[in-house]
Design a protein around this nucleic acid. Structure first.
Length: 270
DNA sequence: TCAAGATGATCAG
DNA sequence: TGATCCTCTTGAT
């Protein structure tokens, strides 16, 4: 259930149990069997994330590339693995731990060149130290598309999903249908800095909390958890409910196939 | 018990 | 833009 912070945490968790160790790699479901056999028994070098992509490198060269998509889940456990439950596409097992992958959009074995191609297709990731927000602004600044759509475009910016989109635009008090070309440099710098802050918090806690005491203390008492995927939020999945800040009814509509949420007063169109 | 919807992305038309 | 992939949770029946 991924936005960028989920993948970042996942890479760290996989490194903690598998990096530098030989692992058994299987595909109980069968769809990854041939590729699994190629790396079965090999030593894991390093797991790393970029945007919503996850890469598990093996010392012998091959790389497992995973994209969880909308519904994929990678679970990690200690000790001996249980009998596979459901469709386990990929299972990695070491002497002390195991990891099961289910429901992923992508699970494939790739080489260094393919990984370079994938990384090259992605916009800057707010969680990576080498990320360059100028690259994203260059795309946004010249686009007629809505900023709400541009933030979700992984070639513009990587790792941001529907929750961070809705919440970062609310926190910037920016209407999601504002054309990219009308977003000023100053505005963009503030959104980027906020995304870095929100996503680093997400890495630390495993939750998406965008209403936080240090940001807006007066709102804390009114904010309510939406569900377990995240924490206290301003507008995400709150369509039809009152805005925590101004009490206006939070709006919702579908934009490019994804649900969009905003407050029509706090995020007034200009 | 069952259907719908969900933090995503790709492909066809 | 809609269909599709795939799994899990939630809410309706």
């Amino acid at each position: 259930m991924p936005e960028g912070h989920t993948l970042f945490r996942l890479a760290a968790a996989l490194n903690a149990v598998f990096a530098g160790r030989p692992v058994e790699v299987t595909s109980p479901q069968g769809r990854f069997s041939n590729s699994a056999a190629t790396v079965d028994g090999q030593v894991v070098d390093l797991a790393e994330s970029a945007g919503k992509h996850l890469f598990v490198r093996f010392e012998s060269g091959p790389i497992i590339h995973v994209h969880l998509g909308l519904i994929g889940v990678f679970t990690i456990g200690d000790g001996d693995p249980p009998e596979p439950v459901g469709a386990v596409r990929l299972r990695i097992v070491s002497a002390a731990a195991y990891a099961d992958l289910r429901g992923a959009t992508t699970c494939e074995l790739i080489d260094e060149d393919k990984m370079t191609t994938i990384l090259g297709s992605l916009g800057p990731d707010p969680l990576r130290l080498d990320a360059d927000p100028d690259k994203a602004f260059a795309r946004i600044h010249t686009s007629k598309k809505a900023i709400g759509a541009l933030l979700m475009d992984q070639t513009v910016l990587s790792g941001v999903g529907n929750v961070y989109r809705a919440e970062s635009l609310f926190r910037a008090r920016l209407h999601p249908l504002t054309p990219g070309a009308k977003v000023s440099r100053r505005r963009w710098d503030a959104i980027w800095a906020d995304l870095v802050d929100l996503m680093e918090y997400g890495v630390q806690t495993g939750r998406i909390d965008t209403v936080r005491p240090e940001h807006e203390p007066e709102v804390m008492g009114r904010a309510a958890r939406v569900d377990d995927h995240g924490g206290e939020v301003y507008v995400y999945r709150r369509g039809g409910q009152p805005c925590h800040v101004c009490s206006s009814v939070v709006r919702t509509r579908v934009l490019e196939g994804r649900n969009l949420f905003w407050c029509p007063v706090c995020q007034r169109r200009r």
